[in-house]
């Protein structure tokens, strides 16, 4: 085969596999991430109520601008404070 130079980086992010699903919510700590999209907080309010009714505890986090990737320290705080995370993605 002709020697082509690839434009791809084999180390680039591809499709990340899904994390293992939890077997229940009771006693779990759920991090709720508001990405600052229109009505995202409203959506998470409802989710938060449902999660608490199912026995989970919750903690709220927010990104300053939805279109920018979450900063490393925010991801770290979500990981520290949550067994699970729910992100309010879009309006």
């Amino acid at each position: 085969m002709t020697d082509y130079v690839s434009p791809f980086d084999p180390r680039a992010r591809g499709d990340d596999p899904l994390a293992p699903r939890p077997d229940g919510l009771a006693g779990r700590r759920v991090a709720l991430l508001d990405i600052s999209k229109n009505r995202g907080a409203e959506f998470l309010d409802h989710i938060e109520q449902r999660l608490r009714a199912d026995g989970a505890s919750t903690a709220r986090f927010a990104k300053p601008l939805f279109s920018r990737a979450a900063a490393g320290d925010l991801i770290e705080r979500v990981a520290i404070h949550g067994d699970l995370a729910v992100e309010g993605l879009a309006d």
């Binding site: 130079v5 434009p7 791809f8 980086d9 992010r13």
Partner: peptide, 20 residues
């Protein structure tokens, strides 16, 4: 790195894109 997948933009890859 080039968003969103953060592949590294080596000049060789940029040149490959320019050729393509």
């Amino acid at each position: 790195p080039v968003p969103p997948g953060m592949g590294e933009a080596t000049l060789e890859r940029v040149a490959a894109c320019a050729v393509l």
